[in-house]
């Protein structure tokens, strides 16, 4: 499913990286540890996290992830949004917890 459609269905906020929303999400990975994502996430997955800093976009871009979803209503700083635009990584947000949003995404994509 396209990131744009997933974002619509889940009511996600789009902070930046809109040029990447036509990419297809192939599953997801839930972690707040960057090395865990580097070691275990796969390309085209959606990354669910509480981390909001610039390195999140660097990791997402290096791993060719489909999008980043920031949970718990946390907001990225302006420079992180700029970075998501530059790297074409959709940066999304939700007020829900990682558990809730991961559950919904799982049931949509499985």
């Amino acid at each position: 499913m396209k990131i744009s459609e997933l974002a619509d269905r889940l009511g996600l906020i789009l902070y930046g990286g809109s040029s990447g929303i036509d990419k297809d999400a192939e599953g997801g990975y839930c972690s707040d540890l960057l090395s865990d994502v580097m070691g275990h996430a796969h390309a085209n997955q959606v990354w669910i996290t509480v981390q909001t800093h610039k390195n999140v976009i660097a990791v997402a871009s290096l791993k060719e992830l489909a999008a980043v979803i920031i949970v718990q209503g946390l907001e990225p700083a302006p420079e992180v949004i700029v970075q998501s635009e530059a790297e074409n990584i959709p940066l999304l947000g939700t007020s829900e917890s990682a558990f809730e949003i991961a559950g919904k995404i799982y049931s949509i994509l499985k």
Partner: peptide
């Protein structure tokens, strides 16, 4: 706190 320091870098 930034998500570094998981102690998984060298094994990666």
């Amino acid at each position: 706190e930034m998500g570094f320091g998981a102690g998984m870098g060298l094994s990666n």
